[in-house]
Design a protein around this nucleic acid. Structure first.
Length: 310
DNA sequence: TTCCAGCGTG
DNA sequence: CACGCCGGAA
């Protein structure tokens, strides 16, 4: 899945020469200090770190990664672990499916050389375009480009005039742009710089154009600098509520209940949830959630009619 | 209450 | 391509 090669316009190329140097300089002074950013990186640790990073703010990884790696120090140990222990180790991080997929990936990788190509990484469950490339970049400093939402924002705004803080270039254009400007000898450093810059200066909401070292070179800066933090006319999609909470919250609570008890009947689950008894609709809803947790591979119901972590 | 942020499925 | 998945922080 290589992006179509793109030749930067000579104008863009000229502008970029200064951008690269300024951004790296900014990064050297202002980078976020994370424990996993060490000189030598174990591919397995990069894999875990990147999966934890999916849909999750980097600061929250700090809390979970060391503990997880202590508990599952190698691919083989994760592959051999009880799934219930992996789920428990993931509790609080969110998107629990990632834990299941990560262990499945570990099983697939167990006792084999760690993959070094995008195609091989993409075969793993839970590894998509972004993560496959990110692993190659952070584990091996491989000269490929990857685009997360931070990089998407930074490149869109820098190279094209974005009408507001929400609008971005199409994904394939950004990837092509990313490939075109990639400093191929320092892919890892460059991507970390782009991400940190996007997370702290070129933020989604209320970007700090006033203190941006690239302001003079940024196409969108003049548009974004005075934009109010909250945009009107942008319709907010409200999350559907079930009995006062989004379903994901109920799923999380129920999964946590099951993970903290050895065998729970449906009645016990209902009791723990402290919802008004005799609410038939709520009972049916909980049943649906329990069924889904089983379908999704988190739980099982044994012949004693009690629910357990799978 | 809103914000943040990739993958897999239908 | 649209949607569901999680939970802490702002």
């Amino acid at each position: 899945m290589s992006p179509s090669p793109l030749t930067l316009s000579s104008r863009d190329r000229k502008r970029f020469a200064g951008i690269e140097e300024t951004l790296i300089e900014w990064y050297n002074m202002n980078r976020r200090k994370f424990s996993w950013r060490k000189k030598i990186r174990d591919p397995y640790e990069v894999l875990v770190c990147e999966v934890m990073g999916q849909q999750t703010q980097a600061s929250r990884i700090e809390e979970f990664l060391p503990r997880f790696l202590h508990q599952f120090p190698t691919i083989e140990s994760l592959a051999a672990a009880k799934q219930s222990d992996v789920i428990r180790a993931w509790q609080g991080l969110g998107y629990n499916r990632r834990a299941l997929n990560l262990q499945r990936a570990a099983i697939a990788l167990s006792n084999k050389p760690f993959p070094k190509t995008e195609a091989d990484l993409l075969k793993l469950p839970g590894i998509g375009d972004y993560t496959a490339r990110a692993i190659l970049i952070f584990a091996y400093n491989k000269p490929v480009a990857t685009v997360d939402v931070n990089i998407e924002r930074v490149l869109s705004r820098l190279f094209r005039i974005m009408p507001d803080s929400q609008t971005m270039l199409p994904k394939h254009e950004i990837l092509a742009l990313g490939e075109a400007i990639l400093p191929r000898k320092r892919s890892r450093l460059w991507h970390e710089a782009l991400m940190d810059f996007g997370a702290t200066i070129c933020k989604k909401r209320a970007p700090k154009c006033g203190e941006c070292p690239l302001y003079a070179k940024c196409k969108s800066g003049p548009v974004l600098i005075d934009q109010p933090a909250t945009l009107k006319n942008l319709k907010v999609i409200k999350e559907r509520q079930y009995f006062g909470q989004p379903k994901r919250i109920w799923r999380g609570r129920i999964l946590k209940l099951i993970s903290m008890n050895h065998g729970l009947t449906e009645a016990s689950v209902l009791r723990h949830l402290k919802h008004s008894k005799g609410d038939a609709d709520f009972k049916q809803f909980v049943q649906e959630v329990l069924r889904a947790l089983i379908t999704d591979g988190f739980c099982i119901r044994k012949s004693d009619r009690k629910y357990y972590l799978a």
